[in-house]
Write a protein that binds this DNA or RNA. Structure first.
Lengths: 149, 149
DNA sequence: AGGTAATGGTTATCCTAGGTAACTATATTA
DNA sequence: TAATATAGTTACCTAGGATAACCATTACCT
């Protein structure tokens, strides 16, 4: 008897994961819409704010997204005046950084997003949050390793 | 000094969450492609296998997706012969269930997905998995409550 | 009971954000 | 120096979301 009717935790894990993703993305986009931004754009602002600069390939690898997708999002952010190209030795690559405006906007939006994220983490202890952060990082590594590329 | 340069755990939490989503979805779709399925279809098979039957509105609420999206996916699954309508008192609603073929396919795919999910959860204890499952459920509730609907 | 509300579903049309294939320009390497 | 690898772009396609407007049926309210 034992085990037969128990729901397997690994399958339940990803079930919950998918079930959380959509409402999270929906509500994140509602917050971002207040600043005329979308998730894909926000992710890049986030990365550039933290890392100061990045090439398109770097962004592509980091976000597990193909280069043309990055090109498009970066083009849009350039049009908005939030990012700009900086000089680089290697003339093939396009090294991007936030403009002053881009930094300002990021910090602005950050306030909105902080409030949102804090509110929906109500009732989850910081210890648990840190544990989950570590887990998600590990799983990501597992996936990236096994898929080779 | 303290706190000023520390990365806030709530913002890191969702950063990792987004960073995990894309590679997970990519690799999930690779597994599903072996059976000519997509994530959206798989999610519905999953729900119907577990709950025996569901109306389109039920699926729509459950997955936090609008009705037309569900209509489209269900139509495709009907064409594939994996789901069928069952009689219902309320003649407005379309109550769906898995066909025999649908059940068979689900169980087949389940084997593939089990292996995949287990492999990428390497190194995460079952206790931690259960903790994360609980957390994700809570966050989801928080989001759904605050957004009213 | 009859008129109005609400609910379940569909159709048409749009958009985000991803993908592939094929290409150019520049660097690297054999 | 020729061949190869890398960074990025362009053109085009797709999954899977969204909205708006609609029809059919049911529930509700005087």
């Amino acid at each position: 008897m034992r085990g037969v009717f128990r729901i397997k935790s690994y399958s339940e894990f990803f079930h919950q994961f998918l079930l959380l993703y959509r409402p999270f993305e929906n509500h994140l986009n509602i917050q971002l819409a207040k600043h005329d931004l979308y998730r894909a754009q926000w992710s890049i602002l986030f990365y550039l704010y933290r890392n100061d600069s990045a090439t398109l390939v770097e962004l592509s690898n980091y976000q597990s997204v193909e280069k043309p997708t990055v090109t498009r999002t970066i083009t849009r952010l350039e049009e908005l005046g939030y990012v700009e190209q900086m000089p680089s030795k290697d003339r093939r690559e396009k090294k991007m950084q936030l403009t002053l405006l881009g930094k300002k906007v990021y910090e602005d939006v950050r306030v909105t997003i902080d409030a949102f994220e804090q509110s929906i983490l109500q009732g989850i202890s910081e210890e648990d949050q840190l544990k989950a952060i570590r887990m998600m990082g590990e799983i990501r590594s597992n996936i990236l390793e096994q898929g080779d590329k």
